[in-house]
Nucleic acid binder design. Structure first.
Length: 448
RNA sequence: GCGAGAUUAGCUCAGUUGGUUAGAGCGUCCGGUUGUGGUCCGGAAGGUCAUGGGUUCAAGCCCCAUAUCUCGCCCCA
């Protein structure tokens, strides 16, 4: 066997069958909760004009400065101009672009949309951090009310509950006010640290220059001690923001959603205003957010639309899967094979083809060994697939118009008429367990 | 982008102070007398020891570089 010559690019992974069932399970929960709440699904391109991200997310954020996956539409390397496109690092900017592009302000407001799919960041890979990863994402655009903030959080909460990982996570919530509030606060914070820089660790001294708000969630002990007597962001919030925050928390109480107010919660994207929140796993110590989001009232206007409020969240699906595995949650396996068809001899093989086909069309998960392997090997295969029943067809049976039906768990078998094989299997498995579907009842929502 | 640790069969790992032909378990495949699984027994396949250099009479083992993975930082999903 030759050594594998090719492998997945750095930070990307094959999603093998045993893990893929987690993804389909999560998607199912997402679709279910989305439909219940009237969200409609949207899909945007994997790549967009890079300016959408640069303008929307903020040119000086890490996501844009060092994590954007650039895409050039041109071949070759002779072209030294900047790439025109970038792979999406998240959904929100794309969905807002779509809202503006398709005149969705003409629809009844708010417009509630959700999306599921891969996003890309040119990061150094780490646990729960990959260059290609999947998110599910919810947005409410066009109407601002504290009740919508609470309802949006509720959708995420319900999905995490459905997946049985909600109790592992803690909802952190904060209000970071308007851009003006934050501007005033940053000035005050800088003033406060004048003369105290020497007590700050190197990293945080730099942050004071580049992104002072980040000091709030610094892990450095010295910094946290200094922050205790520093001005707080809360003191700089305008009355409207304070009242809004109070109302959001009231509504969360009303909905029975547990939360932990966190004045230090600051999200790194420029477009956030007012409400921000994250679901954390506190046990890991690190603030590894499974999902999070917030209000982005200035974003639509930044992307060329009219002044339109919005709020949304994104949840990392790989991180969700990790939580499920830690919690010992296993999605139901629908790939279970019901029947194995073993065969001996050319006549039998030929007959098996249509038998297998009939079983499958009836909704019985059926596989057959159509190679030339010995019966022993075929039976071993049947065992490995864990089938409940095996149908055996040899030369003799073909001649006599019969077939052997073996119950694998019981280890017993009997000969029945060939024509009764399909109905007999269906009866044994039970109508309810047949895998049949009518396309009209499932309008293309079961995949993807 | 910065720091640390890893890399031996499909998987999980042994491999002595450098010393002949590279080891196990699991998994895979094939057998264990006419056409019957799980347990049991036997056999086989599968490795340029991540890649490329270097030191040495001799390298899986020592040195350097590169790649990838893992764990931190930054940041985030």
């Amino acid at each position: 066997m030759a050594e594998a010559q090719f492998r997945t690019p750095k930070g990307t992974h094959d999603l093998l069958p045993e893990d893929h069932v987690f993804m389909t399970y999560i998607k199912k929960a997402v679709r279910h909760r989305a439909r219940q709440a009237g969200y409609k699904r949207i899909e945007t391109p994997l790549f967009e004009n890079r300016a959408i991200f640069e303008r929307g997310i903020g040119a000086h954020t890490d996501i844009v400065e060092k994590e954007l996956f650039m895409v050039s539409s041109k071949h070759g390397t002779d072209d030294d101009s900047q790439p025109e496109f970038a792979l999406r690092p998240e959904f929100t900017a794309s969905i807002c672009r779509s809202y503006v592009e398709h005149g969705m302000q003409q629809l009844p407001q708010p417009v509630e949309l959700y999306a599921i799919g891969p996003c890309f960041r040119h990061d150094r890979p780490q646990k729960g951090r990959y260059r290609q990863f999947n998110q599910f994402n919810f947005e409410i655009i066009g109407l601002k009310d504290a009740s919508l903030d609470a309802q949006l959080i509720q959708v995420l909460s319900r999905i995490l509950e459905d997946l049985k990982i909600l109790d592992r996570l803690c909802l952190q919530i904060n209000n970071i006010g308007t851009a003006e509030n934050r501007g005033a606060y940053v000035e005050a914070l800088k003033d406060y640290f004048i003369g105290k820089e020497r007590n700050l660790p190197d990293l945080d001294r730099k942050r004071l220059e580049t992104n002072p708000l980040r000091l709030l969630d610094s892990k450095e002990e010295d910094t946290q001690i200094l922050l205790k007597s520093a001005p707080t962001l809360e003191q700089f919030l305008n009355d409207e923001s304070k009242a809004y925050h109070e109302t959001v928390l009231e509504y969360l109480d009303e909905l029975g959603i547990a939360y932990q107010p966190n004045p230090g919660l600051v999200r790194g994207l420029d477009y956030y205003t007012q409400t921000v929140f994250e679901y954390w796993d506190e046990s890991t110590g690190a603030q590894n957010a499974v999902g999070g989001g917030g209000r982005y009232d200035p974003l639509i206007e930044l992307l060329g639309g009219s002044n339109t409020p919005g709020i949304g969240f994104a949840c990392g699906m790989e991180r969700t899967v990790w939580q499920m595995k830690q919690a010992g949650i296993k999605p139901p396996n629908k790939d279970q094979v019901d029947v194995f068809v073993a065969q001996l001899g050319p006549e039998a093989k030929k007959t098996c083809l249509s038998l297998i086909s009939q079983l499958r069309d009836s909704g019985v998960h059926t596989i057959g060994a159509l190679g030339e392997a010995s019966l022993k090997s075929q039976m071993r295969l049947a065992d490995k697939f864990g089938v409940r029943y095996t149908l055996l067809l040899g030369q003799m049976e073909v001649k006599e118009g019969v077939i052997i039906l073996r119950d694998m768990a019981a280890g017993k078998q009997k000969q029945i008429k060939f024509d009764t094989a399909v109905p007999a299997i269906i009866k044994l498995i039970g109508d309810k367990n047949l895998d049949t579907y009518m396309l009209k009842d499932h309008m293309g929502e079961e995949d993807g």
